[in-house]
Design a protein around this nucleic acid. Structure first.
Lengths: 341, 341
DNA sequence: CTGTTAGCGCTTTCAC
DNA sequence: GTGAAAGCGCTAACAG
């Protein structure tokens, strides 16, 4: 028909085709569509119409090649199944989405080899930055300093303190919890938490103890650490109430543990919150809002952790030196009826 | 120093630099690294060493441009906060990851405009396919037929039956649940579920009714529909047991509802599973494994839904015509102690 | 205001 | 076995 190369059927429209249909050069078509250069408005109109008629979408790979940046970031997750990943991911995706950056999601599923593999893929794709999302708040191995793009660690901090990390403030959250119980008049308070091998459990216990001693109080006993389960919440509460029936407040390390505590207290005929106050942690709506009574809880604001991590990447991409430090996102108290009548 | 253009500091190494260091042409360097063409093994070795020394990572955008495909797919999620999204995402990411395809994650957060915006971005990035992940099993608007890439709908089917959809089999799951109760000897069975406005609730109820009538049984009463909460589980069970104290089996529409049922039965002094069997739905480990007694449940195998959706995209990319239909992933029974002693 | 030209980094014919 | 050259689709100089 003409000297135009035959494009494979179904191959996306190119700018050249738009230009031809509009009767202009590719350069002009480009200028008309990007709007970054002046073009006669009649011409622009013709180009835009041609583009629409051909369902033209500019090939981002070509732009990437030219601009040296891709408008993408990598989200390197340790394990997507982790319940705490999602709010962090959602917060980050949200922050990037509004800045029209797209997100590559990679799941290392707890495997360092797979992580390395994904890291390589992200670098090949020339992501402008990487957020590493851990599945616990325990420090994780740094990706190293020699990467060509900024890296921010979210939820799990890097074990290299000169990296940039954004984490929930578990110490502050533990403190917030116990301060609330003290504020509602409790004095004989105990702490039941998850496994001591988790930084989250240890940090929340630290905050708990700090709050107690700041108020001049002694915990009725040392914290009970165990599995992060309702069952442990029930068992630990049984143990606790047997040896310390005078307890009038329980700070639980998770909402699950708090639910277990509520169940046992109910079985023992203790009324919450009249007799004894119970506060959970995580503000996991499904558990907290359906407890009997509804569970007061500490919210780690994980969505905000993700959002801030995204902001730090944004800044680093724009050349702002990121804070070489661990940034702790404050927790919030969400009051329901298990602490005050 | 030489006639070599000065690269901006920090710009990634190019193949040309590797080639120069190895003393070969870019063409040869390319062949050596991709391994798709024959190169003297001494040369290959030199190139590989040069690439390593310079920390070379091939620019994927350049390859994309050449190859016309990107090795990426878009995951267009309606709402990341949805609890059922995650297993689907994880299943898909997993399937793609092993095929070394990377995944763009987009969250429309329930907004059609944002979805359109993300769709456009995905097309610009020349994804090889798109998986649309809904947050309920209700049919959702089709993206249309005129897209230049294959599209598969996961969890929520497309409202256009000629699209390709992969969904959990809720009818089969409801049937599986009631069949199990019948198998353990229950006869006076009731169904308590979530909101009737959800296809999931209606479909599970259909399966329930089919199972009952196949066994020649009548439900003790019509299904109770209400909110997808523990609270409703408690309330509905109170209503049910008041009017039908003879009930010996409850098929719950979710694990939360089942948990509520267990609580009420416990309050009423009915023992599970001796007196009465309770089966949940979703097999949400946190809820099911910590219930008293541990909750038998139906698992929708959502991870598999995601994996199959990914496979369908793979196939479509490879030119296999995808099934124009809704493919229902069978549910599984996960037995614990709430149905049989 | 518009078109021509020169690449971005890479892979691939096609000669040598 | 190796290199020169063309070109993927696009944008940014620079002329005209």
């Amino acid at each position: 028909m003409s000297d135009v190369r035959v494009r494979p059927a179904g191959a996306p429209t190119t700018l050249a085709e738009v230009a031809r249909l509009a009767g202009v050069s590719v350069a002009t078509a480009s200028k008309a569509l990007t709007g970054r250069h002046h073009v006669a408005s009649a011409t622009r109109q013709r180009v835009i119409e041609a583009a629409e008629k051909l369902a033209f979408t500019p090939n981002q790979s070509a732009r990437n090649l030219l601009e040296g940046r891709t408008g993408t970031v990598g989200l390197l997750a340790s394990d997507l199944e982790g319940r705490f990943m999602i709010p962090v991911l959602a917060g980050a995706e949200d922050a990037f989405g509004t800045g029209s950056i797209n997100v590559f999601l990679c799941d290392a599923r707890g495997d360092a080899v797979r992580e390395q593999h994904h890291l390589r893929a992200l670098l090949n794709r020339r992501v402008d930055g990487i957020i590493v999302v851990g599945d616990t708040t325990d420090p994780r191995p740094s990706l190293g300093k020699q990467l060509p793009v900024p890296v921010v660690y979210a939820y799990a901090p890097s074990d290299d303190p000169t990296d940039t990390s954004v984490v929930p403030d578990n110490v502050g959250g533990g403190r917030l919890a116990v301060d609330h119980l003290i504020a509602v008049g409790r004095r004989r308070i105990a702490h039941i938490s998850g496994e001591r091998s988790y930084a989250a459990a240890r940090d929340r216990a630290l905050g708990f103890e700090a709050g107690m001693s700041a108020a001049g109080l002694e915990p009725v006993r040392e914290p009970l650490f165990g599995p992060w389960t309702e069952r442990w919440g029930r068992d630990a509460t049984t143990i606790l109430m047997r040896s310390h029936p005078e307890v009038d407040g329980i700070v639980a390390g998770s909402d699950q543990i708090a639910r277990g505590a509520l169940d046992t207290l109910r079985d023992l005929g203790r009324t919450v919150p009249e007799d004894i106050s119970v506060i959970g942690y995580d503000n996991w709506a499904v558990l907290a809002a359906n407890a009997r009574p509804e569970l007061t809880s500490i919210d780690s604001d994980l969505q905000e952790v993700g959002r801030i991590a995204a902001m730090r990447i944004f800044e680093a991409i724009d050349g702002v030196a990121p804070p070489s430090s661990i940034e702790a996102q404050p927790a919030r108290l969400v009051m329901r009826s298990s602490t005050i009548g």
